Amino acid sequence: MTRMSADERRESVIRAALHEFARGGYHGTSTEAIARRVGVSQPYLFRLFPNKQAIFLAAATRCMARTREVFADAVEGLEGEAAQDAMANAYTQLIADDPDILQMQLQTYVAVAAAEAAGEHEFGEMVRTGWLELWDTVHVPLGADEKETAQFMAFGMLINTLAAMGFKPDHAIWEGLFPAARAKGRLEK
């Protein structure tokens, strides 16, 4: 058995944290559960990350980065409506293939709202920075049009909400929402 380097352990902590936080949220997830999933002690976990918030932020950052990567890959060489369709289809495939991505996004929004309400603005600022990078990833392929970008992101949030509520791919509520993805069965779990 080969020993993992600190970077490899850090990576495994981020993956485990994304899974655990996606399921339990910031306040409902213990660092003990994350350490157990990785197979390390809690003290070792805190040698890799200074605190629970840093672990959560690393997981949230990974989630946003993965979504940006999917969008960027989908639009390579495309623009306008073709880019919009490609990103929509790629996103619906992402959340169907990896439900933790969707759940982590939703948990991140809840955690930011709670932190803001508690006066902890730095955490929200870090998450908003990542979200703005996601916006920029979408914005350029859509012709740098604010209205198109806002509409695309609004549809994405609607998809997040409907998927999180468990609406099945064949439900009538999906009609009109990215029919190409639906026709190909990409909303199936």
Results as ranks from 00 to 15, higher is better:
1 M>S: 15
2 T>L: 10
3 R>H: 03
4 M>T: 05
11 E>K: 12
12 S>V: 07
12 S>L: 12
13 V>D: 15
19 H>F: 07
22 A>C: 09
24 G>F: 04
24 G>W: 00
29 T>M: 00
31 T>I: 02
32 E>C: 11
36 R>S: 09
38 V>I: 02
41 S>Q: 05
43 P>S: 04
45 L>I: 07
48 L>Y: 14
49 F>W: 12
50 P>F: 02
52 K>R: 12
53 Q>H: 06
57 L>I: 09
59 A>V: 04
59 A>N: 13
60 A>G: 01
62 R>Q: 15
65 A>G: 06
65 A>L: 11
69 E>K: 09
71 F>H: 14
81 E>I: 01
87 M>N: 11
89 N>D: 14
92 T>F: 08
92 T>S: 05
96 A>V: 07
96 A>H: 03
101 I>K: 04
103 Q>A: 07
104 M>A: 10
104 M>D: 14
108 T>M: 00
111 A>E: 12
114 A>F: 05
118 A>Y: 01
122 E>D: 06
123 F>Q: 13
131 W>N: 13
135 W>A: 01
143 G>L: 08
145 D>S: 04
146 E>L: 06
147 K>Q: 13
147 K>E: 10
154 A>K: 04
163 A>I: 10
163 A>Q: 07
163 A>F: 09
169 P>G: 00
178 F>S: 05
179 P>T: 10
179 P>K: 08
179 P>D: 11
180 A>N: 12
180 A>C: 06
181 A>Q: 11
